[in-house]
Design a protein around this nucleic acid. Structure first.
Length: 708
RNA sequence: GGCGAGGUAGCUCAGCCGGUUAGAGCACAGGCUUCAUAAGCCUGGGGUCGUGGGUUCGAGUCCCACUCUCGCUACCA
């Protein structure tokens, strides 16, 4: 088999949020594909990066009172940690906010300019005079002009489904500052891709690069009419790269994000001594020479050719299948070999929901469950199509226990103990053709992996498992083990069983890398190549069997869901309505009478669920338009900052708060408020109004300490 | 409205270029086994393959119509 050179990317996660189970459909799918290619002996490079630019990041950083760079650095660390926890192994994880990316953006931009793709047009947009920024649609809220429904965001109404311009909203307000936005126009830069219409038509419809339904979608939606120009610039202030030949304008985040694929590749190339051009630039001399070469040389040259595979969700189809190829084509870069598009994750047949606890973050999952279950589960449900993938919790438990533990691992579990400390037979015993049958399956399994049809892979492996388990059942080595003269026969049967186990683990290695590792250790020979499934292992020492994967209890899954539900927010921050006259400190019964003790007892477990921390107020500020709130930036130790809105304006001034220590509920679910997201709650006593008394630790406490 | 995908056992689905009595897992019923992480094996019940036409010696599989469900409908991450 000739070695392919394959560059694989997964979509860049946005630095505005944590990785959740929905993201993981993509990263697990892609990681499996990459591991498969590597196992097959191909040169495969897995590239990703954080997507860091745009208004959302800018606004959030502002709310948290820190720089965008600090925010995206934290987020990047969190993302990397989450991915590692799920055994998702990137060859390079970059950032779109890198010098390499800036340079590549400039290069591509210059090419677009030179070839006349860039035009300038005036755009009228809502502008927030208080926040000093133009407002993306989702930062504007108002009454629907069609059906009068209130509190509708952006450019469409959830109630009546109509779409409109945000400027048409009745009584629009900025969700950033509460100000009334005004219409302002500014010159934006556009890329005209209509010039490439014919090329895009041909590229998308060729049947080679896209799934058929995607090709049809593009044809039906976009290619039937002239392609609209793409607005790729945003006026300052904007967190991103300033456009060199258009000062005061920045590239829209979607312009520099896909270029991040290239930048991250370039970083990898520098580390590995690879040539970036081999991966991303079409070598014209090679291609033009091809026609005159012999077929031998042709195949040699095609070996040098590298492939580019993008894995994305269906929400960003448009960018990856029209703009991105257009940009690459226009600037002389190599086009994607294939764009693999998958559907969304639903949980229990419904969209993920924060209130139902089905919006599970990667880190929350890892607190409760082994990543192998999810990798296996997703694999068992993923096909080559764009269907949404449903996570059914019962089925999840079932697959993990019945198929993974009771099926696959059980083969080793029921045979290895008879060979612990001994070794496999020197020559592979007769097994009625089981090994050959499984070995012959490798081709169809490999084809299924190649086309991302993992459910077929799992289905096939399950059949192999059933055969192996039926074989063991029939031969019953445990019965023979009681007869000393049958020791050799037991060894033979177990050698067969363990070899069948090993084959299956080889086939599943892309899905279950840890299991492959453990199986290698058990059997005294690492699993490192696809071909390991083709010839039986003989004579190697067998280690004592240790559990490879625990069974799952439904309770663990339920706990994870509970853990993902937002904790009910105590609403005192939003109350404080009637100021109560100051009370003398007489230790009287008034306070108790007003708010009697809670009758329900709470367990120590209930209490420890609440993560109380010492924090220092780094900065405090009035919130424009808010009557009761102050915005606090808290330091929870080290670099950890939190943005908290506290309803304490009636009792404190910002100046009184800066630098003092407070007690904060650190694991309170973030709460979206009118002025931004509040990421915790400052503890205080008192009834509201003037009567709010912040809790403070005694001298000596430092930020980050937990309150017990 | 347009476009796309799909309607196969109680549930989740597989069925490639049309071909013998329509498959798997889960669930359910019965039996075997007790080596294994209360794991494993065998047997069974149960489906007019959305509806109606058509092509064909023969259709779940091709064509048409109808019907229902879901998704998408771009400058939003």
């Amino acid at each position: 088999m000739t070695q392919r050179r394959i560059l694989v990317t997964a979509a860049l996660p946005y630095a505005n949020g944590h990785i959740h189970l929905g993201h993981l459909v993509e990263y697990i799918q892609t990681d499996i594909w990459v591991r498969f290619q590597k196992l097959r002996g191909h040169k495969c490079v897995f590239i990703c990066a954080d997507d860091t630019h745009g208004t959302a990041i800018m606004i959030r950083a502002r709310q948290e009172g820190r720089s965008e760079e600090a925010l995206i650095a934290d987020m990047r660390d969190a993302h990397i940690c989450d991915f590692a926890g799920f055994d998702i192994e990137f060859d390079n994880y970059g950032s779109t906010n890198s010098e390499t990316n800036r340079e590549l953006c400039h290069e591509i931009w210059a090419a677009l300019r030179n070839d006349g793709y860039v035009t300038e047009q005036s755009v009228t947009q809502l502008y927030d005079p208080k926040a000093g920024t133009f407002l993306a649609d989702r930062f504007v809220k108002g009454t629907c002009p069609k059906c009068q429904a209130e509190n509708q965001y952006g450019d469409n109404c959830e109630k009546c489904g109509s779409t409109y311009s945000p400027a048409d909203l009745i009584n629009p307000t900025s969700t950033l500052s509460g100000a009334t936005p005004e219409l302002r126009s500014a010159n934006h830069l556009f890329v005209s891709i209509e010039k490439l219409h014919e090329f895009l038509e041909q590229w998308t419809q060729s049947g080679e690069h896209l799934q058929i339904e995607v090709a049809n979608y593009l044809k039906g939606h976009f290619l039937g009419e002239p392609l609209r120009d793409w607005d790729v610039s945003r006026p300052a202030p904007y967190f991103g790269f300033e456009i060199s030949d258009s000062p005061g304008n920045f590239w829209y985040v979607w312009f520099d994000a896909p270029i991040g694929y290239m930048a991250s590749t370039m970083e990898w190339c520098r580390k590995q001594g690879e040539n970036f051009d081999d991966w991303w630039r079409e070598d014209k001399s090679q291609i033009s020479n091809l026609k005159s070469q012999t077929s031998d040389l042709k195949s040699e040259i095609s070996n040098l050719k590298s492939e580019i595979h993008h894995f994305i969700g269906k929400d960003i189809t448009y960018f990856h299948t029209l703009f991105w190829p257009a940009m690459l084509k226009a600037s002389g870069f190599k086009l994607p070999t294939k764009v693999h598009i998958h559907g969304f994750l639903t949980v229990g047949g419904e969209k993920m929901s924060k209130s139902k606890g089905t919006f599970v973050q990667a880190a929350t999952y890892l607190k409760h469950l082994d990543p192998a279950y999810l990798r296996y589960y997703y694999a068992s449900k993923l096909g080559p199509r764009l269907d949404d993938l449903d996570l059914s919790l019962d089925e999840f438990v079932d697959k993990a226990n019945k198929q993974l533990v009771g099926g696959v691992v059980n083969i080793a579990s029921r045979t290895a103990k008879f060979l612990g400390g001994k070794s496999l037979c020197e020559t592979y015993p007769a097994d009625g053709g089981l090994f050959l049958f499984a070995a012959a399956a490798h081709e169809s399994i490999a084809e299924a992996y190649e086309r991302c049809d993992y459910q077929t892979v799992i289905r096939t492996c399950k059949e192999l498992c059933d055969r192996a388990n039926a074989y063991l059942d029939e031969r019953a080595p445990w019965t023979l083990a009681k007869q000393p003269d049958k020791a050799e026969e037991v060894r033979q049967i177990c050698s067969v069983g363990l070899n069948l186990f090993r084959q299956i683990v080889v086939y599943l290695a892309p899905v279950l890398p840890r299991l492959a590792q453990q199986a290698g250790e058990l059997l005294g020979a690492p699993i490192s190549r696809w071909e390991d499934a083709q010839s039986p292992l003989t004579g190697t020492p067998i280690a004592n069997f240790q559990h490879m994967l625990k069974r799952v209890e439904l309770k663990q899954v339920q706990n994870m869901i509970e853990d993902s539900k937002p904790v009910e927010l105590l609403t005192w921050v939003e109350q404080g309505d009637v100021p109560v006259p100051a009370v003398q400190s007489t230790d009287g019964p008034e306070a108790l009478e007003k708010e009697p003790l809670v009758a329900d007892l709470c367990s120590i477990d209930d209490f420890t669920k609440i993560d109380l921390r010492v924090a220092r107020v780094v900065s405090a500020a009035h919130v424009e338009g808010a009557d009761k709130l102050l915005q606090l930036t808290l330091n929870l130790g080290g670099e950890l900052r939190r943005n908290v809105f506290a309803g304490i304006k009636s009792a404190y001034t910002p100046e009184q708060l800066v630098d003092r220590l407070v007690i904060v509920v650190a694991n309170l679910a973030p709460r979206k408020m009118r002025f931004g997201v509040s990421e915790g709650m400052v503890c205080a006593a008192g009834g509201g109004g003037q009567e709010i008394f912040l809790l403070s630790p005694d001298c000596g406490a430092v930020p980050g300490q937990r309150v017990h």
